[in-house]
Each structure stands twice: as C-alpha cells, then as structure tokens.
Amino acid sequence: MPQLHDVDYTLEYPYTRTTGPIIGPFLTGLRDGRILGQRCGDRVLCPPMEFDPDTFATLESDLVEVGPGGEVVNWTWVAEPSAKHPFDRPFGFAFIKLDGADTALVHAVDTGGDPEAMSTGMRVRAQFRDERHGSVADVYFVPEADAADQVIEPGEEPVTITEHLIGLRINEPLYPHRARFAQGLLDGKIIGQRSPVTGKVYVPGRGYDNMSRVLMSESDEVEVSDVGTVVAFTELNPVQYYGQTETEPYVRCSILFDGTDQPVIGIDIRDMTVDEMRVGMRMRCIWRDPEERSVEDIDNRYGNIPETVYARFEPTGEPDIPADELKEHSW
C-alpha cells in the first residue's frame, strides 16, 4: 500500500543579473584565466568595486591584472562543507590579498583536506576550473607549491549577464494534520477541520482557524463528502518558466465539497474542455484504485487534492447550484 513520507524537496530560483561596467570585465577575466582589480586612487581593489569604499564616489572602469599569486591574511577551516561550497571535502576559506591588490578577495583554498596546511601569511595561487561560466566560482586557490601551470583558452563574448541557480533544500516530517489529511486521501476520504468557534469546515485544514485565531487538532477533524460544486475554473496555458512540467492547456477548478465552507482550489481536470465547465456544476471525485494512489505531491506548504489520488472528476448530472448562492466561495 502507498505510504506517507517526509517532505523533501529543493526550492530553486534561477537568478539572472546584469554585470555592469566593472564586475562584467572581472567575470570575463575569470572565464579567460585572468584576475582583474579596479584602480581607486593609489589603491587597487580586488574584488573590484563600482565605488570608492571610503567615499562612495563612483569609479570609472579602470582595471588592472592582479595575482595569480597572493597572500592569505585571514582564514577559517570548513570541516563540514555545505552543498553550496566550492568543494565537497573540507577546505579553507581565506581572505586573499592578491599580488598587486590592496584589498582582499574571499575565496576557497584547497589543501587536499589538510587544515594544518593553512596559515596566515601563506602563499597561494589561483587555479582555474576546466569549465568556466564567467562566475567567481570559475577560480579557486591552492598553496603556491601545489599550483599547476595552466593554459586557458579565452572565450569570445564579454560576460554581461551572470546566472545563479539557487536551491534551498527543505526536509521535515509532514505536520500531524497534514499527515492525517494525506492519509485520508490514500484511504479515499477527504478530511476537513471544523472550527470550534464558528463551526465552519475548512478543507484541507491548516491546523488553525485563521478567522477566529484558534488552533485546531484531531478532535476538530471531520470526513466530508467527495461530491461538491464547481465555484471557479480557468484554463491554464502553460508558460515555459524554469521548472514547468506542463506543456498543453488544461482546466483547473475549485470545488466546494458538500458540507464545507471553503473550496478546495487547484483541482485539475484533464478530460473536459473549458467550454464544458460551469460555475454551479455538481461534480463527484472518482478515486484511483487504492494501490495506485500517491500523496508524494503533498508537502506542508503545497498540495490539496492532487491528481495522483483521483482518476477524474465526473459531473453528477444533478441540476446546477445557482451561481448567486456561491458568491461567498468564489475563489
């Protein structure tokens, strides 16, 4: 039989940023195997900046090559790298004052996992990765004695855009009320929560009644009908954003199940066209066979009644409910 599971997903956002007149050449340089600093009066800033950090005056682009060697002026050892770090084994993060620069760059030093190799004043040298994308992660550092000579093929176009895909991993158990709701779906039941204050029934329950500001628990839970009324619908034409899995238009609707006070939104209809949908239409849930049901798409934040538990929603043939009577629930 299908079972409940912990929530485990990675929320991703692709960020695209323009690079501007100083960071752009800096990132272009890294892609091409060179490190550039920005002149600022008598000083050279690396990482380069678009403004004087003391006066905040705008700096015109005036870049000069620095490094590839430099000196560690501060460091810390990362015993447990995060998934976002440049190395998946222990390494040092360091403030590195590159030869020819007056300020320090924060970057990673790979000593082969040996913290004893790190020290303030140590000499390091830049190494460039085989795959470079015009990012600060194109480079890393090693103790000078371990550095290899590299031949870097420059790219063609200057870097004017930087892409950064961020990912936040979320891992936790289903909250108790979410677990009971999800288990209900596996059992072919829709579980709601009845407010102890107003008597209104919410599906799915959130563990509280936000109108009366009271927490709700298992004792407030009720099984509700799997027959209801369409209160809203639309046709979705999938825009191909990052992470989109849909390609064809489909109908999404909200259904107010009998005896409840809040429609379940986001119910997808694959076997009817938008022309066949009506507000007020009576619909019944036709469940999948028990062993074919899955609640993998239900987490603590998203997921109401997913397609993985029902085969389809079917018009009951009863007369429509007048739309006027549904105004309170049109969402």
Binding site: P86, A137, T162
Partner: peptide
C-alpha cells in the same frame, strides 16, 4: 529546522563575488 540556514543565509551576501561560492554566516 526544515532547511539549511548556512545555505539560505549565504544568499544575503554579495550576489557576484560571495553568494556563488556559498559564503555562509558560520564561515
């Protein structure tokens, strides 16, 4: 508790020179 604050809060840092190397608050 559900996520990694080290990874999440590394995104508070400079998006060009710090965030891409995961420069986290503990570091």
């Amino acid at each position: 508790s559900p996520g990694s604050y080290r990874e999440g809060f590394s995104l508070q840092t400079d998006p060009y020179v710090h965030a891409p190397i995961g420069l986290d608050p503990r570091t």
